[in-house]
């Protein structure tokens, strides 16, 4: 492993997020009168972080690759509605509903990915188009098929146990899925050759392709992962709450991008880390949900998020510059 000196730690992509998280917690304790023990044990912000985190991770990898996926905003309700319509309204086996929800995510991800690599249209615009299109499809299909914009779902016990259970009364099982996804992606991105290719692709796509990297296939794969993950989050929500709504999900776009950027991912690609994205998500969750634990009026949380975003981006830029100019073993 790398030498864990404080200086070399600062050169990691996630160092800004670590400081942001500490600063936000300290701020709430000092000025919000938060009892830190009670706060850390609270489920609300952890549940919030897990749902957001499962989407933020693949979107963050796309950003490292130099792309963006905002269709997640429509894929969360799409995942939740499709399982509710298939297994709730039509009463088909839950496995069919799960397959339908995840399959829909994969198909939309494929469309996003193929359009991105085949055209020169920026992925922001392509996924904006699929975002709007999927919103329309989900709303019309559910009204057409069920006559309603909200559909009940009664999942069998085994499905609830895996996807929609509360552990210890308050903690959503999706927290474990988030930890699992983060662990797998950590190994794939930071310990396996895939990660090297991802960073190369985000740094300079043409050179990466010339080095023999299947950039198109990797890009499409990442889009499939992000749309499917969003659909998964929606699906788990429907199983947990026994119903699905066509609305909701749009906030995830904004929340995920802020989490990723605070987590030290470079907007233009080529730099970032899985740990950073996780820490950025935690920081975002602490600010937006932790505010309820403080004496501070909750309307201030947006201001805090805005300030935090600017400070984090500034810190990340400074750390990146330091990493570029610093030579750990410089001789005198």
């Amino acid at each position: 492993m790398t030498i864990l000196s404080p200086v070399s730690l600062l050169h990691r992509p996630q160092s800004g997020a670590v400081l942001s998280l500490i600063a936000v917690l300290a701020f709430f304790m000092l000025f919000g009168g938060v009892d830190i023990g009670r706060f850390l044990g609270a489920a609300s912000w952890v549940n919030f972080a897990a749902n957001l985190g499962i989407v933020a991770l693949p979107v963050g990898l796309l950003m490292i690759a130099g792309e963006l996926d905002i269709s997640i905003g429509a894929m969360i309700p799409a995942g939740s509605m499709s399982i509710a319509v298939v297994s709730g309204h039509y009463d088909l086996p839950i496995l069919v509903g799960i397959g339908f929800a995840l399959g829909l995510g994969a198909v939309v991800g494929l469309i996003n990915g193929i359009l991105t690599v085949r055209t020169s249209v920026p992925s922001l615009i392509i996924t904006l188009a699929t975002l709007v299109a999927m919103q329309g499809i989900v709303l019309s299909a559910s009204v057409l098929l069920t006559g309603n914009a909200s559909v009940p779902l009664d999942a069998p016990a085994w499905a609830k146990a895996i996807f929609g259970r509360l552990i210890g009364g308050n903690y959503q099982i999706i927290i474990l899925w988030w930890i699992g996804l983060a662990a797998v992606l950590y190994v794939v991105v930071h310990q396996m050759p895939f990660g090297n290719r991802l960073f190369a692709m985000g740094g300079d796509r043409a050179s990466a392709r010339n080095a023999g990297i299947a950039t198109d296939r990797m890009t499409i794969g990442l889009f499939v992962l992000s749309a499917t993950s969003a659909s998964f989050v929606g699906m788990c929500g429907a199983i947990l709450f026994n119903s699905a709504q066509v609305s909701g999900g749009m906030n995830y776009i904004f929340n995920a991008v802020v989490s990723i950027v605070v987590g030290g991912v470079l907007l233009t690609g080529g730099f970032g880390s899985v740990i950073g994205i996780v820490l950025g998500t935690l920081t975002f969750a602490v600010v937006s949900q932790g505010i309820y634990f403080t004496d501070i009026d909750r309307n201030w949380s947006s201001l805090i998020i805005g300030v935090m975003l600017l400070v984090a981006v500034w810190m990340n830029n400074s750390f990146r510059t330091m990493a570029l100019t610093h030579s750990p073993k410089k001789k005198p």
Binding site: R197, A211, G270, R320
Partner: peptide
């Protein structure tokens, strides 16, 4: 690849 390490970029 300016933001990659020497070792990593060598073996892309």
């Amino acid at each position: 690849f300016p933001l990659m390490s020497i070792g990593r970029s060598f073996f892309v």
